[in-house]
């Protein structure tokens, strides 16, 4: 959240527009895989779902690229859209089951930045 005395220039006097989005994007705490043996199940679920989520994101990006290139037919776009939506819903259910948040599925890879 930028303090006023560090604002160099803004195209709008409404700094709250930025504050709101930055507040949502803030990730103040490091994300780690839970390795506590007593919570092994949650840790494993976190690891597996993180990977699934990564694959889902990558496939979705790939699909977007192909729509952008115009190499997908209308029908294919419909089908992919449906698939990705179902996948997202299923992921949300699984996250619920294991009590995981989106943040917990986004690992910090140090100098490489965040995974997702």
């Amino acid at each position: 959240m930028p303090r006023d005395d560090h604002v160099l220039a803004s195209s709008t006097p409404r700094l709250d527009l930025f504050a709101e989005e930055l507040g949502q994007a803030a990730t103040p705490f490091p994300r780690r895989i839970e390795a506590d043996p007593e919570r092994l199940e949650k840790g494993l679920a976190q690891l597996v779902l993180t990977l699934v989520e990564l694959l889902r994101e990558l496939m979705e990006r790939q699909a977007l690229r192909r729509i952008d290139d115009g190499t997908l037919t209308d029908e294919e776009i419909d089908r992919l859209g449906e698939t990705f939506m179902l996948l997202e819903q299923r992921m949300a259910e699984l996250k619920d089951v294991f009590g995981l948040t989106d943040e917990e599925l986004n690992m910090n890879l140090g100098p490489l930045g965040n995974l997702l």
Partner: peptide
């Protein structure tokens, strides 16, 4: 719909 969602993301 899934299609609109995908196009929105694009």
């Amino acid at each position: 719909s899934g299609r609109e969602r995908l196009l929105g993301k694009l």
